[in-house]
Structure formats: C-alpha cells, structure tokens
Design a protein around this nucleic acid. Structure first.
Lengths: 117, 117
DNA sequence: TGAACCTTGACACATCCGTGCTAAGGTTGC
DNA sequence: GCAACCTTAGCACGGATGTGTCAAGGTTCA
C-alpha cells in the first residue's frame, strides 16, 4: 500500500485515529481509499494534518472555524454576503446624508441577501 | 436621545435584548453609549442587526462563524495561515516531483506558521 | 486460519454556544 | 419620589463540538 494506514498516520501526526475519521467527516481532510475501503494517508495528507494542528493551536481556533472558512472559499455567495455585512461600516462615510447612505446600504444588502440573489 | 434604547431596538429588529448584549460581547455590533452608559442604537446599528439576522438564517451559520470571519478580516496573519492551508492542494500539481513539491509546501507553511513569522 | 489490522455505527462525556431568566443597583422623567 | 427603564453579573439549560471507547463485521497476510 502506498501511504500509511489510519493508525500509522495517527502515530506520526499526533491526531487520534478517531479524529482522523472526524476530520474526514467534516470535509477537512479527505484521504483516498484502497479498493477495499481502507484510508490511505500519503505525504500530502500527513503534511496537511500536521499544519492543521499547528494552525488550530497557534491561533486558538476550532475545527468548525476552519470548516466555515472552507465554506466561504467554496460558496462565493456566502463570502459576498459576509464581506458585505462587514463592509457596512458602523458609521456612515462623511459627506453623505445619513438617510441616503442608509437607503444605499439597504439596497446593497437586498441585492446580496434577497431571495432573488 | 438620538437612537433607540436596547428594548426598542430589540422590538424593531427581532433580536432579544439579551442577544443584543451578547452580540456586543462578541464584538459583532458595538452601539455607542450615552454619558450614563445606556446603549444607543442608531439606524446603522438597526440595519446591521437586521441584515445579520438574514445572513445567519439564509446561510444557516452561527455567530461564532461570523466572529471567526471577523477575526480573519482583522488578523492578516490568521487569514494568510488559513488561506495557505487550503491552498496546499490535496494532490501536487502535475509535472512536479512529489518530493520537491512536498518540501516546498513544508517551507511555505513554516514561513507562515513558524514562530518567527 | 487466526491475529492484527481496517471499516461504520453508536453511546458517552466535557466543553462551548446561544439564549432566557433573575438579582442588585444606577438613570430617566413625570 | 416612584415607575419604568437601563446597567452588569450570574445561573441554567438545550444543542452542537470534539473526543474516547466499544461493538459487529470485513481485509490482510504470515
């Protein structure tokens, strides 16, 4: 077999076999399978597993955070909606009447969030 | 008072007063305060509250997801690290020896994740 | 063929997230 | 000055996350 089995991969990456399966279930690491269904962890998977661990530890975030980042990369509409929400500055720009600015913001959000989007 | 009080804002946005305070505690909505410490919800805050509700419902995500998106916007290093992790494609590009590619990836990750970053 | 691995599925548990409620105390406004 | 609002702080609780462990069964290989 070209690649490690799940227990071997667990051994060298520091994840538990259980977590390796969990990571697959949430779509973060998807190792290929042998014909009989065994997971095969190649160098790329091992490297990604190690760096994922570092990422979580260094920035103290959870798997669901990374999973959401993945959703944003894959769903352009979601990314747009989130970006737009943040770009609605808490204070209107200078030189624009507050009412006009608010109306413009409302339209912008409706464009991106509305059912017909 | 120019702006609604927390209960009035709750009334018109559909959030509960409790959640308005919670949203502030996680940094998603930060209404200004009166001299005595009362929150003032102006048109911008109200609009953001409504669109936030839409956003969560339409894409079925949680506040912690949006909070993480905020972290990524504000912490360039975090954003870089996450992007880099995703860009480590599960399969090396064609025409590059697997070992070379892996070494290159390792270096890239060390650049972005290493303590000296 | 039998030991040692793999698979999926499920139960269990700690922790966090989202949310409501209550308590103790300050502010506002008639 | 009192009713009706605001503040923070805290308890509580259901649901989701992250993780271990066990069970029942298929695969590998000496």
């Amino acid at each position: 077999m070209d690649g490690l089995t799940i227990n071997e991969a667990a051994e060298t990456t520091g994840w538990s076999p259980r977590m390796l399966r969990y990571l697959e279930s949430v779509g973060l690491i998807l190792p290929p399978r042998t014909d009989s269904g065994y997971r095969k962890f190649g160098p790329e998977e091992l490297q990604r597993l190690r760096t994922l661990k570092e990422l979580l530890a260094r920035f103290d975030c959870g798997l669901s955070d990374i999973a959401f980042a993945k959703r944003m990369r894959e769903d352009e509409e979601l990314k747009q909606a989130v970006d737009t929400w943040f770009e609605a500055a808490p204070r209107p720009p200078e030189g624009v009447a507050s009412d006009d600015w608010l109306r413009w913001e409302q339209e912008k959000h409706q464009r991106l969030l509305g059912i017909a989007a």
